[in-house]
């Protein structure tokens, strides 16, 4: 799979990353290099092999439905949550007006 500069610009725009034409040109080569390298995996015959998601046997852990059981992953910390907001007002995040 080869990508061109238009694709590079589209991906950058979807990711909200500004890139110059020079950067896009450089990126085209880099990304194609990465994709080509990864594509080597396609040479391996995986017939009959189950896809693997982790190298060690591991199961998704689930939490109990308890509010604020661990302060680190609980709520009631508005000041912390808003601490880095450039414009916090009345307990809200303020952002430039976005309206459809």
């Amino acid at each position: 799979m080869a990508i061109d500069q238009a694709t590079v610009r589209k991906i950058a725009s979807l990711a909200r990353i500004a890139i110059s034409d020079a950067e896009a040109a450089a990126m085209e080569g880099e990304l194609n290099g990465i994709l080509g390298w990864v594509e080597q995996l396609g040479e391996v015959d995986v017939t009959g092999v189950e896809p693997m998601t982790a190298v060690i046997p591991n199961q998704l852990r689930l939490r109990d439905d308890v509010i604020d059981a661990d302060p680190l992953t609980g709520g009631n910390r508005r000041d912390d949550v808003l601490a880095n907001a450039p414009a916090a007002m009345h307990g809200f995040f303020g952002v430039p007006k976005v309206i459809e």
Partner: peptide, 11 residues
């Protein structure tokens, strides 16, 4: 109240 039920995960 706004943003009182927000954890660091949700933010």
């Amino acid at each position: 109240e706004p943003n009182t039920q927000v954890s660091l995960v949700d933010a």
